[in-house]
Design a binder for these strands. Structure first.
Lengths: 189, 189, 189, 189
DNA sequence: TATGAATGAGAGTTCATTCAT
DNA sequence: CATGAATGAACTCTCATTCAT
């Protein structure tokens, strides 16, 4: 059982690493297998196929991200501070996990995205949404559609992490603050 | 000669259409050929291979975008108005050309991106940069690295267009203004 | 395991047969696969590609040849008799294995040859060279560069086998002796 | 007309050069055209197709060779001297024209060879054969089938030229004499 | 005489997937 | 649980050849 989980995690890890660098296209099942030091056939014991593997990977990564963003949150702080903290966590997490960022960006822009995966992320996601909805109600942030708010936070953070990983943008502590400011200015009332 | 250019354009068009929907992976040379109603071998008369085809496509699309964004600009307006106009143009163009938006987003996040394509876009790009640099000097916008400013404008616009095309965000005239406001708030002093 | 070796040998056999008749050019991987009654993809499980397949084939064939030429040799005979025996074995082997002969001739004259394959044939090759070197020292044969001696024996034998296979030269027992005589006269002191 | 002949010769020359280096397989019509600085389509004005081109090339090269071998011959010399001269000319010519040598060797061992080309070389060939037949009658050389004699002269010379061109055998003036001796010993009574 | 443009056929190769062991 | 062996389908790309101009 532990062994079982280990192997499964190993596969996901190897797939993530390869996809982040080589893309979906450049990541074959046999290369994933090689990287995980198992046989390609073994992957099919753990996953139905490449599509399922990638979708599982997405769910895992997204869940990790959401958890990390919310987990260190101080609920006693004023909403404004909480929201800035969330944005900051988001950027920091993606910079610390560039493979996750690269994977998610590719996934969101690929045909894989069209498969209905999103729903299953509910638990952690709801927590985040609650904060946002409350902030809207309290007129702390603009009354924009959630999808647009997501762009102004999540997508922005992703792009920052991508440029940082590519060496095009050096995200120092100072720049991180500037970036959070910019994000915040975009959504605040 | 005209004939020659026609075929080339036909191929680029067919490739764009397919890539926007099916991604790089799902777009084979033979499918492009079929869509363009030519033989697959013909593509190789116009392009060295898939990589060159995709890079040429990128250059074409990016050049079109930059031209469109700048072309309708009124240089007599105050910088602030000019910048807002540019951001609005950007979003509008990408919404009107969702295939271009989808292609560019994929390209930027794929290994293709690592080939040194960027340099050749200079002409139109410089015009845009001049406006931005001046705005920074006049302290109209924040003194942020250009790469971050690009994220806060170009990447944002891309994401908006993507969500709109996916039916997740309905960009009405009113929402367009809200989005421009948000962008502008993010970068303005 | 046995199964494994069988398939590999089957592929080599099919490739040899086709190359001998149709040349490298006329021998496609799919034709080899058809002849071996396997899928073309299977070849790639055993060989990296066409080049490796051909090089492996060369090594196998050359090793077989060298072994056959030396194996039946009576080391108690005088050197002169041993050498004549070797030459005779050479011609006989190539006439009995016309596909091997055809393959080797093509290989030696093709660009494949330039890849560094030769070194690996050492073991059997050294035995042969020892005999030749000794014969040179004992002044039984001319003091010519080994490469020239190879031409006067190996290449000659190849050509004889080729013409025989093509029906241009009928190598009877009598002619075989004449050919050995001619070879021997060419190299003897 | 002159122009016509020039272009034709240019094509043959380009084809020879490429085939000698890259083999039949590695020599495409378009590469030949490029090397000749003409359009690929133009080749088809001068030759029916690749096969005819290669066969014409063979005829041209073989005719040149035969002419060169015989042309400088002193018919007043004794037969023995004439024959040695012919062998020497053969080797020298092939060493001076390594592309011709490489081409002929490949041709003779390829499926192209099976097309009935040989007959057309008659004129120069007959002269050579006359000398050989007379030498056989006068019991100066062994009474071997002409095909075997060809091996012992032409094929040998080819192999020497090939190894020389490959840098495996350095044919100095001295070695040339040794090679002629060996050849001669092989065929003389 | 020469060629730009086009193509059907087929090359080598990779892939996701299967299944007996 | 794990895998060696196998494969059909599809991929990128090249080739010899054609033909209107």
């Amino acid at each position: 059982m532990t062994h079982h989980e280990d192997t499964r995690a190993l596969i996901l890890q190897a797939a993530l690493k390869s996809i982040a660098v080589n893309g979906f296209h450049g990541t074959s099942m046999s290369k994933v297998a090689q990287a995980a030091k198992i046989s390609a056939a073994t992957i099919y014991y753990y996953f139905e196929g490449k599509d399922e593997l990638i979708n599982e990977l997405y769910k895992t990564i997204k869940a990790n991200l959401l958890r990390a963003v919310i987990v260190e949150q101080d609920e006693t702080l004023p909403l404004r501070a909480q929201l800035r903290q969330i944005i900051k966590n988001l950027i920091k997490y993606l910079i610390l996990h560039p493979q996750d960022a690269a994977f998610m960006e590719q996934f969101d822009r690929s045909p894989y995205n069209q498969l209905a995966t999103q729903a299953e992320l509910a638990p952690a996601f709801k927590r985040l949404m609650a904060v946002i909805d409350q902030a809207k109600q309290e007129q702390i942030i603009k009354d924009l559609p959630n999808e647009l708010l997501e762009i102004l936070t999540m997508d922005l953070a992703s792009s920052i992490a991508r440029k940082h990983a590519a060496g095009l943008l050096n995200v120092t502590e100072a720049l991180l603050d500037q970036a959070v400011d910019a994000c915040w200015d975009a959504i605040r009332r």
